[in-house]
């Protein structure tokens, strides 16, 4: 069954070239939150959602992809290269940038400094950084107004925007988003998700991890259901939205 959302990301359908390939990935974060034997694929240009409840291993999975946690078994290939044992800074330089759960902006630094640090690995390309910073300010005009303000004094929604902007300055070829809707009012969630779609349409490949399954699957092309650290189901997002089990477990109707 062709998903109507697949039309939303034509580049994915067009290239079909696989950007991220995860095979049999296992790891854990503390004694409980673990992932087991994860297989995952993200094609260039795709917007893929991973949904699951609290403690399903979503954050552990993203942290393992970005090198913040070690993988205990399995392989992560990015653009054909095996990056399983790479350190985080090298993974960022290769083009995987993560928006952490709970924003995690550098609170005592200004908005502008946060964005500058986002471009830490791109510091040689000053022209591009300046342009990209302006693009971020156009995307989130409120950040432009507050560029001298300390990041810690921003509202939750503004901090989320800043966290996304900071990741964009890392020049992501694959953007990992960890619960961008967490703790935000519905209107703000809508705005953040609109921006995510816009970024994807501009060509940024996105892996979106969300507890808010409905919102995530509504914008994604494909989705994975993560349950207690394992992939329980994968299908085009529209199919998952229509799936009875998924609806009962994650959509609440």
């Amino acid at each position: 069954m062709p998903s109507d959302r697949a039309g939303g990301c034509p580049s994915a359908a067009a290239t079909g070239h696989s950007l991220l390939d995860v095979m049999g990935l296992s790891g854990h974060y503390g004694p409980v939150r673990a992932i087991h034997q994860i297989d995952l694929r993200v094609g260039a240009g795709e917007l893929v959602a991973i949904v699951g409840g609290n403690g399903a291993g979503k954050t552990t999975l993203l942290h393992t992809l970005s090198g913040l946690h070690p993988a205990h078994a399995g392989q992560i290939r990015f653009d054909g290269r095996d990056i399983t044992r790479w350190l985080p800074h090298r993974i960022v330089a290769a083009g995987i940038c993560q928006v952490l759960e709970g924003r995690q902006v550098f609170a005592p630094l200004s908005v502008e400094d946060n964005l500058r640090l986002g471009g830490y690995r791109q510091h040689r390309d000053r022209g591009w950084l300046r342009e990209e910073r302006e693009r971020v300010y156009t995307l989130f005009p409120i950040l432009a107004e507050r560029r001298r303000q300390l990041a810690g004094t921003l509202s939750g929604g503004q901090q989320q925007m800043l966290a996304i902007g900071r990741a964009l300055l890392g020049r992501p070829r694959l953007l990992l988003l960890d619960e961008p809707s967490m703790g935000l009012a519905p209107l703000l969630v809508e705005e953040i998700f609109r921006v995510i779609v816009e970024l994807n349409q501009r060509g940024v490949t996105i892996l979106l991890v969300e507890q808010n399954a409905r919102a995530a699957l509504a914008i994604a092309g494909r989705g994975y259901i993560l349950e207690t650290g394992r992939i329980a189901k994968t299908a085009p997002a529209a199919e998952l939205l229509a799936d009875d089990d998924v609806r009962r477990a994650y959509l609440g109707y």
């Binding site: 970005s66 090198g67 913040l68 985080p88 800074h89 960022v92 330089a93 940038c97 993560q98 952490l100 995690q104 902006v105 550098f106 609170a107 005592p108 630094l109 400094d113 500058r116 640090l117 986002g118 830490y120 690995r121 510091h123 900071r166 990741a167 890392g170």
Partner: peptide, 21 residues
Amino acid sequence: LLGKALLACSFNRTAAQAVGI
């Protein structure tokens, strides 16, 4: 930027790693 990166490590090490420091 190097100085700010050093500060960033003290403010939030995970975030510092996530931006590639």
